[in-house]
Design a protein around this nucleic acid. Sequence first.
DNA 1: TTGAAAGCGCTAACAT
DNA 2: ATGTTAGCGCTTTCAA
Lengths: 330, 330
Amino acid sequence: MAVTIRDVARRAHVSVATVSRALTSPDLVRPETRTRVLAAATELGYQPNRAARGLITGRTGNIGIVVPDLGNPFFTGVLKAVQARAAQADHSVFVADSDEDPVAEAKLVHAMAKQVDGVVLCAPGLEDSRLHEVAAATSLVLLNRRLPGVPAALMDSAGGMGAVVDHLAGLGHRRIAYLNGPRTSWSNQERRRGLLTAVARHGVDLTDLGPFAPRYEGGLQAADLAVAADTTAIIAYNDIMALGVLARLRDLGVSVPGDVSVTGFDDLTYAALCCPPLTTVAMPVARAGRTAVDLLLDRLGSGSPEVPQVVAETRLVVRGTTAPPRGRER
Amino acid sequence: MAVTIRDVARRAHVSVATVSRALTSPDLVRPETRTRVLAAATELGYQPNRAARGLITGRTGNIGIVVPDLGNPFFTGVLKAVQARAAQADHSVFVADSDEDPVAEAKLVHAMAKQVDGVVLCAPGLEDSRLHEVAAATSLVLLNRRLPGVPAALMDSAGGMGAVVDHLAGLGHRRIAYLNGPRTSWSNQERRRGLLTAVARHGVDLTDLGPFAPRYEGGLQAADLAVAADTTAIIAYNDIMALGVLARLRDLGVSVPGDVSVTGFDDLTYAALCCPPLTTVAMPVARAGRTAVDLLLDRLGSGSPEVPQVVAETRLVVRGTTAPPRGRER
DNA sequence: TTGAAAGCGCTAACAT
DNA sequence: ATGTTAGCGCTTTCAA
C-alpha cells in the first residue's frame, strides 16, 4: 500500500495530527518540527489522500465539467482552459461527455456530485426546471446558458451577430439568410436575437432557415435552401455548418464571395485554414472557461449569495468569404 | 448534507451493513429485504459516496488520462473514446493536460495516482527510465508509446507510412521529402522507421528534414525547405503540419498536386475539408482509446501478470493532394 | 440472513 | 506547540 500520514508521523517522531497541521496550516507548528515533518514527507514521497481528506473537510479539490461533445473543438477549447485554471488552483478535473443528450447531462452531474466541489455545465440542452434540480445537487456554474439564480460564464453571441450584420450591411447586402442551429440552444437564441435587432436596424431582408444540425452535414443540407432563397449572404449558426455550406456551394458552382458571402461563428482553428478563409466571430472560449472556474471556486470560498453572470466579448474576424454583393463591387 | 447510507438504513429499518450488502452484493440479503432497501434508496435519491467506498476497497471507480495538448483534435479524439468507454464501465475520468511538458506528465500522474485506479498516458515525451518510475506510482497504460513491461495501446504508424510511400511510389515519385515531428516522439520514430523501410524497398530518394514543431507554423517553415530540396512529394509528420505546408505552397505559387504532392497523418476532420482535401493516414484514435481503457480495467480485475501491447491498424486515405509528378501524368 | 464494530486515511475538536 | 480521540461514509470481518 502507499505511504500514509502515519508513516510520516512515525518517521518524524510526531503524532499524525502534527503531520496534518504541518501540511495544511504550517503556522500551527514550531518551525523546527515543521521542517522535520516536511523532510520526512518528501523522503517517503508522501502524497495526502485527497479522498480521505475530503471525507472530513467536505472539499474534494476536484471540479467537474460536462460538455455536449468532446469531438467539438469549441468545447475542448473550453475544457483546455478549465483544466488549466483548475490546475493553477490545485484542483483536478473530471470530464464527462453528454453526447448532446439533455437527460445524460443531468445524470452525469449527479454522478459527479459527490466527488467534486462543483461542476461547470456547458451549453446544456436541459430545460430550465430540470436545470434547477441539477443545480440543487452541487455547486453549478453554467457556460453559455443563462438561468436566474445560477452563476454563469457567458459569451456575447448577440453582440457578435450584430457585428456580422453590420459588416454585411456595410458591404451592401440587402437580402440575408440565417441558418439556424438547434432552437433550444441558448447560443442560437442569442444569435438570433442579435440578428433580428441588427437586421431591423439596417432594414435588411432576412430569410430564417432551419433549424439544422450544427454540423458539416447540416451545412450541406442548408446550402441548397439558402441558394433557393436567393439571398446574397448566408450567416451560418457556426463554423462547422459554414464549412458544409462552403463545400456544397463549391459543388454547385456558386462562387464565394463572388456570388454569395458566407459567415460562420466560433472561429475554430480551421476557419482560418479553409479556402477561402472564413469570416467568422471569435468566441472567447478560453476566457469563459477560466471565468467559469473562478466563479466556481470563488463562490465555494466565500459562500456569498450573489450570483454573478459574466459575459465575455466576442469579436468579428473578417476574412475571405465576405465581399460586396454582385453589382456592388467597386 | 447529502443523504448517507445511514439515512437509507433508518428508512428501511435495517443496519447500514445490510444496506451496503444490498447494493454491492445483492445475493447476500433476503430478496424481500433487498427490495425494501432499494426502495428506500431510490426514494431518498441515495448515491453512495465513492470516495468513502474507495477508502476501504482500494478501488476508486475513477481513471485518469493525461494528454500533451487538449487543443489537439488527435488527443481529444482519444479522450472522447476513453471517457465513453469508461462511462460504460461505470467509471469516471480525470483529465490533465501536460502542455507538451514531459516533467509535467510525471507530476500529473503522481497527483492523480491516489484518486484513480489507473491512468492512460498519451504519447508521453518522458524518457524510458522516468516512465518506469511513473508506472510504479499507479496502474499505467501507455498510448502510442512502447515500453517493456507496461501495457500499451498502439497505432501502426509504421504500417501507415508504408502505405503512403507505396502510394507515392506507385504514382511515380522518385524524390520524396519527409518533414520530421519531434525526434523523441515514438510516433515520429515509428513513422520514420516505416518510411526508411519502404523507401529502401522502392529505391526512392529520401530527403529527411527537420525536426519541426508538429503545428501549423512548423509546416509553414518546413515548406520552404522542402521546396528547396527539389522533391516531387512531401510527407508531413501530421495533418496540422501538412496544412501549414499547403498554405505556404499556395503563397509560393506552387500548385498541389500539380507541382508537388503532399500527405499528412492523422486524418483529422479538417483534412477532408481543406482544399484540395488532404491525402493522409487515418489513425484509429477511438479504437486505441477504448483499448487503453479495456487494458486498464481488465488488468485491475484480473491482476494477471501479462503485459499486452495492442496495436491497431491505420489506413491510407487518398484524397486530392497526391498525383503523379510532372512529366508522368497520363 | 442480519447486526455490531472495526477501520480505511485523514482533519478537527479537545486536552495537555 | 503537540498529542489524543472522535468521526467523515463506507465495507467487511466476526458474531449471533
